[in-house]
């Protein structure tokens, strides 16, 4: 009898715990939010307008919560148009862009690139918040997210790199010094920085072992930064448009195995013309 009682109590606790979990899960996945509008039967444009109005009219102290609730509510009736809502919310309330994007990617992870693009393009000044909001949930998607953000707001390259350095811990050691020393000035520079940090973090890029983390360092005292002309200093002291320290693969020079003809043909870049569409030919042995 005593054992049965204990067993009943244990089962009771388990069942109530499971019930609590289910309730929690339902809440995360879209249990009826209190602060969201009723969207049943409304068209997409009406749903967007009503949802955004709910966010804009909310008190600033609860706006994050309202934004999350509105997104959860919206995704039930318009799951494929969630990025549109993120874009509209970000345009009307730029300060909510990060929260909106962060919530949206949890609801629709498959739309992570579209959501990034929507939020960043609508609120470019909030790029860092948006990228951090998304990557705090999905740090492993840093490449996809940073790529989308850089395409949507190329002039926010510095914000993108900083956001990635905060949220992606494996890249942080390879970005910290760069970020401390200089500003990332273009989308292509940001792509290269992130790409090289990724290569370095996985050991695929050889670098100076005496200067861990310095692979991406531009001179902290450099001046005159402008697009495409970063004065990167390498060990040889020459600036060739790169910002990186030298690698440690040593070139070995020697005579060619087969010499050129006595009078070789001489051509050059200046004679080149653009390849035509479909003009590429394959050549094989």
């Amino acid at each position: 009898m005593k054992n049965s009682l204990i067993l009943s109590l244990v089962l009771g606790v388990l069942v109530s715990g499971l019930g609590g979990y289910q309730a929690g899960a339902a809440d995360v996945n879209g249990a009826a939010p209190i602060l969201a509008p009723e969207l049943a039967g409304l068209s997409l444009s009406e749903s967007l307008a009503k949802s955004v109005a709910c966010v804009t009219e909310a008190d600033a102290s609860v706006r994050d919560q309202v934004t999350a609730d509105v997104l959860r509510n919206f995704v039930r009736s318009h799951p494929l148009e969630l990025a549109q809502l993120v874009k509209t919310v970000s345009a009307k309330c730029p300060l909510q862009a990060g929260a909106a994007a962060g919530t949206a990617v949890v609801l629709q992870p498959d739309q992570i690139a579209a959501i990034t693009t929507a939020a960043v393009s609508a609120a470019p000044n909030q790029t860092r918040d948006v990228v951090e909001g998304i990557l705090s949930r999905f740090p492993a998607n840093w490449f996809q997210v940073s790529d989308a953000a850089l395409k949507a707001a190329p002039d926010q390259a510095d914000a993108v790199v900083r956001a990635v350095s905060v949220t992606e811990v494996t890249l942080r050691p390879y970005l910290a010094d760069t970020l401390a020393g200089t500003t990332v000035i273009s989308a292509s520079a940001a792509r290269e920085l992130l790409n090289r940090a990724s290569l370095a973090s996985t050991g695929r890029l050889m670098r100076d072992k005496q200067a861990p983390g310095n692979i991406l360092v531009a001179s902290k005292t450099q001046t005159g930064l402008s697009a495409g002309t970063v004065s990167g200093l390498d060990k040889s002291g020459s600036a060739n448009g790169g910002t990186f320290s030298t690698m440690n693969a040593t070139p070995v020079f020697g005579p060619p195995p087969v010499p050129l003809p006595v009078i070789p043909v001489e051509i050059g870049v200046g004679q080149g013309t653009g390849q035509t569409s479909g003009g590429r030919n394959y050549s094989g042995p």
Partner: peptide, 23 residues
């Protein structure tokens, strides 16, 4: 194997501007 064309970057490594060219 290869192709009958080559790539030319008239920008820099950091800010590349690639074009596919033929002679």
């Amino acid at each position: 194997s290869g192709y009958n064309d080559y790539w030319v970057n008239t920008g820099t490594v950091i800010s590349p501007s690639w074009s596919l060219q033929v002679n």
